[in-house]
Amino acid sequence: MSIISTVKLNKIYAEDTFPVHATNDISVNFEQGEFSAIVGPSGCGKTTLLNLLGGLETPTSGEVIIDSKIITNLKSNELTDFRLRNIGFVFQAYNLIPVLTARENVEFIMHLQNYNKDERNARVEELLTAVGLKDKFNKRPGELSGGEQQRVAVARALASKPKFILADEPTANLDSKSTYALLDIMETLNEKENMTFIFSTHDSRVMERARRLVSLDDGKIVNDETK
């Protein structure tokens, strides 16, 4: 059974003036445990599709169904709560809170979910160790390299125990060494914990590792290839 499905998903920007079809009748399914990438040239609709899957944008028409729930019908506050409990996000620019340490950045989302202190401590330790930052718990983002910051962001995305992780160009700002280190960590988490990862990327290094490539062009799926 699919963990994520879309049905004839359309997103049209500037509908009243100069309509731009960012996604065009996209129907696609993602299964639990996938390590997939949405690929395509700039402006093909990768990020828009990822935002629609994550409930960050509302489609013009069509449905996004996550774990049998149609999220496109949810109200804004319901959608926020749904994202908190079901979806992990990794962004291109890391987007960590600069005034918090690595530990606090990961812990923060669990505060929002009202985990108790013992649960938070155990999970933070487990996750930061898993992403190879055991000795950098108390470093602030400014004291970490780009690769390390992105690993904190991955740990943060996992902290809320989401059903899947959406990663928007996660390696765009990283050098090769950091990129491979990050991909290794994500692959390990995918294999060991069966965590679903969906990337939006045009980075060939990510495409090499992804086991499924969903190619977009002009907002349409032009190829869907499983390796």
Binding site: R83, F91, L112, Q113
Partner: peptide
């Protein structure tokens, strides 16, 4: 803007 956007994206509600 980016940080606040991230907070909203990961599940911080409007009241928070």
């Amino acid at each position: 803007v980016r940080e606040i956007g991230m907070l909203m994206a990961i599940g911080m509600n409007k009241i928070q």
